[in-house]
Design a protein around this nucleic acid. Structure first.
Lengths: 208, 208
DNA sequence: ACGGTATGCCAACACCTGTTGACTCCCCGA
DNA sequence: TCGGGGAGTCAACAGGTGTTGGCATACCGT
């Protein structure tokens, strides 16, 4: 009777640490390979076989530990904007603070490219991006903005500029955007974000 | 002898009008279906079979008329920014003019979403986007900007904002960005683009 | 009226995908 | 020491992909 409970280890990937399992190294290797492949190729082109080969492991292990390709992606695309507490920042420097945070958060972590590449074609991932936006960015912006009815719109504008940079710099790799230093990027983007956050309204959105 | 020259009609899709062929309607139907599918699903998920079904035609016809899936995409993603002549526009209204043009160009034509969705995963399409950027946008911006060494950078910044809007509005469909009217969008974006085009440099990029 | 040719469909190919189940081996606890 | 379950491999499945060649048909110039 080899049937019945298979091996009772399958799906509890993110359910508290428990005690360390012997396979944790393998799990981590799979996750690392998956993040790299998803970031480089997007969801469809990143095959489980390729990820398994990168992790020097059999494709079936991926299924055993993460259940399915979607499950693997969900685990690999766990993404936290890690927004800092901005309550101590003076109102006229919010743009600077936000832009600086995002640039340092994204340089050297390619989860965001993975998410963007995948969200472009995978409705589930797009929904995930919308959740991140609503739950993390829009929430933080609401705390910074006076008129709550305008908060969502302001957050959307900020997202359009910041995600636009992520798209052109990390995904499309437009040469001028790739070549700019983080400092230059910061100097150009901060006033834009500052205006989206604080300008009184669209009919007088600051002078050029 | 059915061999030899097959039917001598294959690959000359974009080689001058010639005289109209009887199959032009079919070709157009395929192209229309392809644009819709590529826009909605991206390159990988848009299957030739699905496109053919939409066009009420056999998949093999697609191959006959467009050679391969890549050839079909190349024909479907022919994209012209249709940049107008901006030489008559006063320098302080260039942002307005550019933003207004892009908004009216994109609303109601979903070639750009198709291109973005595909360029996220397909290196060839990403290269195409870079070409469009360099050949169309950067060229136009260079004509508007005084210091030619800064022109590319300015064009890159403009692209980051405009493509960011396209991404969040048409691809990711972030609700606040989707809900904004073109007029509101225009009022918010024009000053940003204006600053990217004309502000003296990054160390004094305009006040908030 | 006829013959060639452009047009279209059908069936199949070779390949690759995610996913599954059975099998071996080794480590760890009792 | 020994047994059980975790870790890992292998081979296969079923379905979908781009792509190809052969065959019927309707059109058009002569």
């Amino acid at each position: 009777m080899t049937a019945g409970v298979p091996q009772e280890q399958g799906t509890e990937s993110a359910a508290g640490p428990g005690r360390p399992r012997r396979s944790d190294a393998t799990r981590a290797a799979i996750l690392r390979a998956a993040q790299a492949r998803f970031a480089a190729d997007g969801y469809d082109r990143a095959t489980i076989r390729a990820i398994a080969a990168d992790a020097r492991i059999d494709p079936s292990m991926v299924m055993r530990y993460y259940g399915s390709k979607e499950g693997l992606f969900a685990a690999a695309a766990e993404f936290d904007l890690c927004l800092p507490d901005l309550s101590g920042v003076p109102a006229e420097r919010l743009g600077e603070a936000l832009v600086g945070h995002f640039l340092s958060r994204w340089e050297g972590d390619d989860t965001l490219p993975a998410l963007l590449r995948t969200a472009s074609t995978n409705p589930g991932a797009a929904e995930r991006v919308r959740e991140i936006f609503t739950g993390q960015l829009a929430g933080a912006v609401a705390r910074l903005v006076d008129d709550p009815t305008q908060a969502l719109r302001r957050a959307g504008l900020v997202a359009s500029q910041l995600l636009g940079v992520a798209l052109t710099r990390y995904v499309l790799r437009l040469p001028p955007v790739v070549d700019m230093s983080p400092a230059d990027l910061h100097a150009w983007l901060a006033p834009t974000v500052q205006r989206y956050l604080r300008a009184q309204d669209a009919t007088s959105p600051g002078r050029s």
